[in-house]
Amino acid sequence: MIPGPFDYHRPASVGDAVKLLADLGDEARPLAGGHSLLPMMKLRLATPAHLIDLHGIAGLKGICRDGDRIVIGAMTTQAELLASAEIGERLPILHETALLIADPQVRYRGTLGGNVANGDPGNDMPALMLALDASYRLEGPNGAREVAAREFYQGAYFTALEPGEILTGISIPVPPAGHGYAYEKLKRKVGDYATAAAGVVLTMAGGKVASCVITLTNLHETPLLATDAANAVIGTTLDDAALKAAASAARAIMQPASDARGPAEYRIHVGGIMVMRALQRAASRAS
């Protein structure tokens, strides 16, 4: 549990950070909250020669409204998300989910940007970003670009980030007022990754589901957008048959690993239950 040697850098601007990454190449890793990277370094499963700490870059923090979108700096912590009234009002699903991430100590240090950029299938926020159709701002040696969260995740720890790029911000369209939402996470204990989790954002009209997005966490090597499952409930009253159809469609795309949380068969089974419970709870919150 002792990391190997590395050099520590603390740039003051995104430009400096990008330059350091470009100069140092593959041997350098950006450091946000560190909750994924530092344990890997302590186990010597990751041995970067250079750590580029992003905490010195003031511009990477904060939450602001930009027209019909909310823009969140990558280094904004889970605790800061929870403290934001704007988030609580416009994106309440982020509050619900942040409270399910680890424990207060972790949330004081862990960042939204680190959570979504790492490509860890166990992280909770990527599924929400898919559900909310967020986009990520990536800055690198060739300038800045926006990539949709739904296009970002390519495999476990494998994302659209190019060498030398840093994820600097998250832009989320504000969902319509009166939307229903829920994030259902089954975990073994506080601090655990999901055995299975499902996020739902929907709107209701005349007692029926008008629009719906369903996403899944830790049930595949990437977060999943369960389009067929969502289509199975649109236009329904979320009756028993519709819920079961959604669970069944969602289960069809799940491919979790068997691990200490249970065999794949179990994780797929409860994944479907998380979908049904999230749908019911989201609908109960919609107006």
Binding site: R188, K189, V190, G191, D192, D259, A260
Partner: peptide, 28 residues
């Protein structure tokens, strides 16, 4: 309710950290 030292068929410990070895917190 869950705390075990479990091995796979090759003799690898699969519950070798507090991530998988059940150590309840005050919440549980």
């Amino acid at each position: 309710m869950g705390q075990e030292i479990r091995y796979d068929s090759e003799g690898n410990v699969v519950t070798g950290s507090f991530m998988d070895f059940f150590m309840p917190t005050a919440v549980e």
